[in-house]
Design a protein around this nucleic acid. Structure first.
Length: 257
DNA sequence: ATGTCGAGCAAAGCTCGA
């Protein structure tokens, strides 16, 4: 079973890119982030025609997350992260696909920091850690996939000082990600490629960063115990980032036995 | 400080978010 995560950065504007990648990569389940489409504007028909069922939680202009399943309908389990009934941002959706509980996560960016957006990022992280703790303890096959907006370690960014003040690299952001992992989750791509220095999933549009491979690893697939035992492979479809009209993220994927 | 990209608002170019 192949499971992917892809920050599409506007599902309607980049629909041809998404359909092309689905056709060639044929993932069994896909987590999308940054739909940037309100609920009624999700391109359901085109995605169905490509052979995928879908559940999604849209929002006007910003955010938005979805889960697609090849030849199946994902079984929705929740479409918001518990812990704050006043949070109206569409950043979490969870569904069962082929016996695996899958979450599509779009963690807040948090810039500029310090400030209210960074506070929101850290508070959202705490809610995720609380919910993930319950899922891990349940000992189910779970994959928490998405754009975490965190560069976990120095190995996960090209050599630069340019991002030192960015919310994605702050010690608080990294500590929260490390605390999530410490519940027992496996960072699948780093597990598979422990020595790779350019395991990036994001290249900023600015300053030719794609052309000089100045990337960041922001998109992660975290595996519960039973799914980690089934991990057989994975990678980043980085060529997708170089195509006409591409998202600034590339798809990351894993295979489970 | 800058660079890129796109949307919203509202009628063109600025502001915002990423």
């Amino acid at each position: 079973m192949k499971i992917a995560t892809f920050n599409i950065n506007n599902v309607n504007r980049r629909l041809p890119n998404l359909l092309e990648w689905l056709e060639e990569a044929k993932p069994d389940a896909v987590c999308l982030q940054e739909l940037k489409a309100e609920q009624s504007r999700f391109p359901r028909a085109a995605i169905e025609a490509a052979g995928y069922g879908a559940v999604w939680r849209g929002q006007k202009t910003w955010n938005g997350v979805a889960i697609l399943a090849r030849g199946a309908e994902p079984v929705l389990t929740r479409d918001e992260l518990p812990g704050d009934p006043d949070d109206g941002q569409s950043r979490y959706i969870e569904a069962a696909v082929n016996g695996v509980l899958i979450a599509s996560i779009y963690l807040p960016n948090g810039n500029p920091q310090p400030g209210p957006k960074f506070d929101y990022k850290l508070a959202w992280f705490e809610r995720l850690i609380a919910h993930a703790g319950e899922l891990f303890a349940a000992d189910l096959p779970v994959v928490l996939a998405g754009d975490y907006n965190v560069v976990p370690t120095e190995r996960d960014i090209y050599p630069t000082k340019s991002w030192d003040d960015d919310a994605l690299l702050q010690p608080e952001s990294r500590a929260a990600f490390a605390r999530l992992l410490s519940q027992g989750w496996t960072d699948a791509l780093r597990r598979l490629h422990p020595e790779t220095d350019d395991l990036y999933t994001f290249w900023d549009y600015k300053r030719g960063r794609w052309g000089r491979n100045a990337g960041l690893r922001l998109d992660h697939l975290l595996l519960s115990r039973s799914t980690a035992d089934r991990l057989t492979g994975g990678g980043v479809d980085r060529d997708v980032r170089g195509r006409e009209g591409a998202s600034d993220h590339a798809p990351a994927w894993i295979s489970l036995d």
